[in-house]
């Protein structure tokens, strides 16, 4: 199956379920492990990496775990780009896939990356902040592999990874949040300071000229060694929930103090999204942010849209290219058409 064959599918993690869905777009969780029979991937030869890949894929084939396989090198730059736009891969893997091998479940929301930085990177993506249940999923997949392969572990340092930034539990949690309130009232700096103090990193996901396009931010944990898995999840949830509460407070403050201005901004955004003929991605994100806020406030009620968050992927470059194959249309034209098809309920 080619990755482009399923391009119109809306990933489960972008359907508007989950807790705090007016702020949390989705959460991504990953867990890194290494196998002690081999050097870490950066020190392995090509043959060793291939042998390791074969061992793992053959073993998992009987277990029916992660049946969708891609050798990243064999995908085109654009196909890898689609996976980046879907938040499955990071941009470094798009540019330099090396010998990394991607294994996915049928729903394409959970999987395993082989031979990239570490031997095994388990990951899954899900709506809301239900980290505990999804952690069980990661651990279950890991159990299956640890039955057959000897995993690197050390009494002092726990699970050993090639980079010391993941040593210990190897767990990274990343929440993707929509924070228009905090952006409008300019509270971002305070939050960054608070995050650093508490062992978290917060950064804008889409950045254009130093500002956060669409007010979409990522929060991730910085430490993997000190705390237990349960503590990492608990502290993460608490910290993100705290940010969400600040966001709610700022949204309320804006409504109470600048009702006309914010309503104006929301309706203008709606108008442009509905009728523009050309939309640049960055411009779209900022309008979309105001539009989404309007839906969350209950100001915009009549928009006919099934899932809001999916628009974040369907308006990106590679998705546009494969969803709408017409060559005579530019990217910005296609973007405007797809946005109108979605929020206007028309079929374009």
């Amino acid at each position: 199956m080619r990755i482009t064959d399923r391009i119109i599918e809306i990933p489960n993690y972008l359907k508007d379920g989950g807790s705090y869905n007016d702020v949390v777009i989705f959460t991504r969780m990953s867990m890194r492990r290494n196998v002690s029979d081999y050097y870490f991937p950066n020190k392995m030869t090509d043959d060793e990496r291939e042998e390791f890949r074969k061992n793992i894929t053959e073993y998992l084939e009987n277990k029916k775990l992660f049946p969708v396989h891609y050798k990243l090198k064999d995908l085109s730059f654009e196909e890898r780009g689609i996976l980046v736009e879907r938040f499955i891969l990071n941009e470094r893997l798009e540019a330099k896939p090396q010998d990394a091998f991607l294994m996915l479940n049928n729903e394409i929301d959970s999987g395993l990356i082989l031979n990239y930085e570490d031997h095994l990177i388990f990951f899954n993506l899900f709506p809301g902040l239900e980290v505990n249940q999804n952690f069980e999923n990661l651990v279950s997949s890991f159990y299956i592999i640890s039955k057959e392969f000897k995993i690197c572990i050390d009494e002092q340092f726990g699970y050993l990874t090639s980079s010391p930034f993941y040593t210990g539990t190897g767990i990274i949690l990343e929440a993707f949040l929509h924070l228009p309130g905090i952006s409008i009232t300019n509270r971002f700096k305070e939050i960054v300071f608070d995050a650093t103090e508490k062992g978290f990193i917060i950064y804008p996901y889409f950045e254009e000229k130093g500002s956060a396009s669409g007010s979409i931010f990522v929060i991730r944990n910085k430490f993997t060694l000190k705390y237990s898995e349960e503590e990492i999840m608990e502290y993460f949830k608490k910290f993100v929930e705290n940010i969400i509460m600040i966001e709610y407070r700022e949204r309320k403050y804006i409504m109470e103090n600048a009702k006309k201005e914010i309503e104006d901004r929301i309706w203008r955004a709606y108008g442009v999204l509905m009728f523009a003929k050309l939309l640049m991605f960055d411009e779209f994100l900022n309008l979309f942010s105001a539009f989404k806020l309007g839906l969350n406030y209950g100001i915009i009620k009549d928009a006919n849209i099934d899932f809001i968050n999916k628009m974040i992927i369907f308006t990106q470059k590679r998705h546009l290219k494969y969803i709408d194959m017409r060559n005579n249309l530019t990217e910005d034209e296609k973007r405007a058409l797809i946005v109108q098809a979605n929020i206007g309920g028309k079929n374009v």
Partner: peptide, 23 residues
């Protein structure tokens, strides 16, 4: 870099069948 020099996590040892079924 980790604010600690000692692993605070758990070693995930035996296979937990119940977890596998749940998955």
């Amino acid at each position: 870099i980790q604010n600690s020099e000692k692993f605070g996590g758990k070693v995930i040892k035996q296979v937990n069948e119940a977890l596998l079924i749940k998955m």
